[in-house]
Design a protein around this nucleic acid. Sequence first.
DNA 1: GTCTATAGATCGATAGAC
DNA 2: GTCTATCGATCTATAGAC
Lengths: 183, 183
Amino acid sequence: MVAERADTLPALAEVFREHGYEGTSLSLISHATGLGKGSLYHFFPGGKEEMASAVLAEIATWFGTNVFAPLEDAEESAQASTAMFDAVELYFRSGERICLLGALALSDGRDRFGSQVRGYFARWVAALAGALTRSGRDRRQAGALAEETVAGIQGAIVLARALDEPDAFSRTMARLRVRLAAP
Amino acid sequence: MVAERADTLPALAEVFREHGYEGTSLSLISHATGLGKGSLYHFFPGGKEEMASAVLAEIATWFGTNVFAPLEDAEESAQASTAMFDAVELYFRSGERICLLGALALSDGRDRFGSQVRGYFARWVAALAGALTRSGRDRRQAGALAEETVAGIQGAIVLARALDEPDAFSRTMARLRVRLAAP
DNA sequence: GTCTATAGATCGATAGAC
DNA sequence: GTCTATCGATCTATAGAC
């Protein structure tokens, strides 16, 4: 069932999302992956920290391919931002799944994984700002709108989880779509 | 220096904000408050969970007095939302301090403190929506704008922490002020 | 009320058999 | 590569002296 290191990453991501970095114990990880500690340390000699770091790297790769690169390569910004929202809503399961990088930014995981967290959000904001600039918005407005949109997505996740109301995420996403589509 | 239970709450709040619920150990708490475990369990027989719950209750009281009640009692909505932003920017120290309730919503603290987290955000959104309704906006638009504003504030905190750039919080707050002031 | 000492469980991590 | 056994540290919580 588990043939290589990468096969463990989805289960690892899930358990870190559910319990946070500090709240995730090796026994939880062992249960979630179906592997004993021996196997886990064989795949991740750096232990829990390396496991979390590998998860963050995979998330960054996924967003790089499915969200950031399309924005960076976009000629038509309207299509690109629509595709971004589609990918993001799918990824966060319409508000039922949190953003691990956002959660780490609010916890002491920020000290441990600061550069990965910073890189993820910086690239997201920059890619979106670039796409908006190429679609004709002036540079200052594009930067502000990009920052506001990424913040809005993160805030929508927080609010939906806090209210235990996933629809709050979908509603906010719909409103952000409209704002980005407007001229 | 510490005469009663309430005197420990500021230090407790600070340590939970810095390390999260799972990441906060009793030895950290002991160091932060200057009290031994014996004193801590005298004040909080329920242990760490009661300490965190007391912190959340105090935060809810502060926001109730300084943010929610003014919105609920406001006759003039423009002044009320300006006062809300002033209080919130001050409280979050222009983006250098996180929202403990937002952080708990993203961690497994949501299971433990779910009703306190839900109550805080539900009251905030409802109070703001009410103020916007009384200022002449139709009910649907007021609800959407309130939800979007609270989410925007939380997202601004996430983004500012993630980028290690407190100004990102202030910039987003300034934009939200403009949006709420617009007719 | 505050302290020290400590219980009992669980933590992350390692060793070594297979 | 996967397991079990186990290490030493740390955890939350309690007991009891003062």
